[in-house]
Design a protein around this nucleic acid. Structure first.
Length: 424
RNA sequence: GCGGGCGUCGCCAAGUGGUUAAGGCAGCGGCUUGUGGCGCCGCUAUUCGGGGGUUCGAAUCCCCUCGCUCGCCCCA
């Protein structure tokens, strides 16, 4: 027997879960459209170069986590590991900035070749927001508050917003040199990983989880001391704006983030209930990315939320199964035709209808009707057909503990039925 | 990429070398071819993630492989 299974780290979204996703997606859409954002959809495959240029050659994502392949034309292709690079590419390619700043959202699958674990898959889904062409601190507060309010509305509380400023590129370069020198003087005291990182990505050492390295780093120079006055002013003002919005945050000077394109504001929203993959939302300002991709220098900020992690956290808060309004029970050939017909009419009137397809005994059909958690049953059998009626029956007790039944004449017209039933 | 745990029906599981692989839930059928939510009865794994090996004999032991899971790394 052939035994086909999903690829490692690739996950099926089963019917029991899919409505949770739909719910979250609809809440997201609601939030985004209220805030005046527009959706952008880009391909999930791009030229490899797009990611290596924008995310950074020396990042883990580019270095070891990308799904690369050559297509039949010999082009080097990559399954997107994140959304921002594609959005930026699309904006530049189509000259969208000629229409002014772009406030966009996107959603879809991303791919990273990593070892799966709780809250981490090889194909996962992100929903993200990008404000491109906006430099103001105000736009940062807005972007952050969209994420915060959305997550709260989905039912997540207990979240922590962590905030840092990476400063301008110049600030950071000066600091990087300073840090390198300091680290090199203490090279032997560092763990192996950190030793390797000094050359390629010294900033990430600040985020090290190694205990002795952590200890050592308490003495290290801090990026916050290298911020220019302008950078500092920006960061202070952002905090003021968040205070004003009553959005709580925690300053984390070691928050660096793994993608090269960030500058100034960087933030993450984390939870204690996710195991070691604690970040639900990550984002920051990326003022040099658009320029890097051949567009004009363009200040930008955005974030991405991991859908799977969000769903884990939301748990049962969002699980309200949609039960049908009516379950249509029928028996006999004529009844079958009427059942099919009336179901269609009722659906056109925006009602949720479950139709029994089995033609088995009324007893069985009632059992299924009950199980479907429908509010009402519509019964069409020989009697109804001969009298030109339908029976509608309430499937749950009313206040008096009885289940009302009522006959409705078909000759009144199916179109009117929907109207009549809605009132029940 | 590295280290630990796990894998028996759709779900939860018993079973640790010996004739037919417990049980519960769900599903299907019946008691009741026109009235459900309770109850009772019956049916549903030639097979133990997959492949190979050891053995007279394997779900049980060995090897390989796939998947899940937890931690590291990293991120959403």
């Amino acid at each position: 027997m052939i035994n086909l299974k999903n690829l490692r780290g690739m996950v099926d979204l089963l019917p029991a879960q899919s409505h949770s996703w739909q719910k979250v997606e609809s809440i997201a859409l609601e939030h985004f459209s209220r805030a005046g954002l527009q959706e952008i959809r880009t391909p999930i495959i791009e030229q490899t170069e797009l990611f290596s240029r924008s995310i950074g050659e020396n990042t883990d994502v580019v270095g070891k986590e990308m799904y690369n392949f050559e297509d039949r034309g010999g082009r080097s292709c990559t399954l997107r590991p994140e959304g921002t690079a594609s959005v930026a590419r699309s904006i530049v390619q189509h000259g969208l900035l000629n229409n002014g700043p772009q406030r966009l959202w996107y959603q879809g699958p991303m791919f990273r070749y990593e070892r799966p674990q709780a809250g981490r898959q090889r194909q996962f889904h992100q929903i993200g927001v990008e404000f491109v062409g906006l430099a103001s601190v105000m736009s940062e507060a807005e972007v952050i508050s969209i994420a915060w309010d959305f997550l709260n509305d989905v039912g997540l509380n207990d979240l922590t917003l962590e905030l840092n400023s990476l400063g301008s590129n110049e600030d950071r370069n000066v600091f990087k040199e300073e840090l390198k020198n300091w680290l090199n003087q203490r090279f032997d005291l560092l763990d192996e990983d950190s030793q390797k990182r000094i050359k390629v990505n010294p900033l990430r050492i600040l985020d090290s989880k190694n205990n002795s390295t952590k200890e050592l780093l308490t003495e290290a120079p801090s990026l916050s001391d290298f911020l220019s006055d302008e950078s500092k002013t920006r960061f202070d003002y952002l905090q003021e704006l968040l205070d004003n919005l009553d959005i709580p945050y925690k300053i984390n000077n070691n928050l660096v983030r793994g993608l090269d394109y960030y500058s100034h504001t960087a933030f993450e929203i984390t939870s204690d209930h996710l195991g070691s993959q604690a970040t639900v939302c990550g984002g920051g300002r990326y003022d040099s990315l658009i320029g890097e991709l051949g567009g004009p220098e363009t200040a930008s900020i955005g974030w991405a939320i991991g859908m799977e992690r969000l769903i884990i956290l939301a748990g049962d808060n969002i699980l309200n199964t949609k039960s049908p309004d009516f379950y249509v029970i029928h028996r006999g050939e004529k009844a079958e035709k009427i059942a099919l017909n009336i179901s269609r009419k009722l659906r056109k009137a925006n009602l949720r209808i479950d139709l029994d397809y089995s033609g088995s005994s009324f007893s069985k059909q009632f059992k299924r009707a009950d199980k479907s958690r429908a509010k009402w049953a519509i019964v069409i059998g020989d009697d109804e057909v001969s009298k030109g009626q339908l029976l509608i029956k309430k499937l749950r007790d009313n206040a008096e503990g009885e289940r009302s039944e009522e006959y409705i004449f078909l000759r009144d017209g199916l179109d009117k039925l929907a109207e009549k039933l809605i009132d029940k």
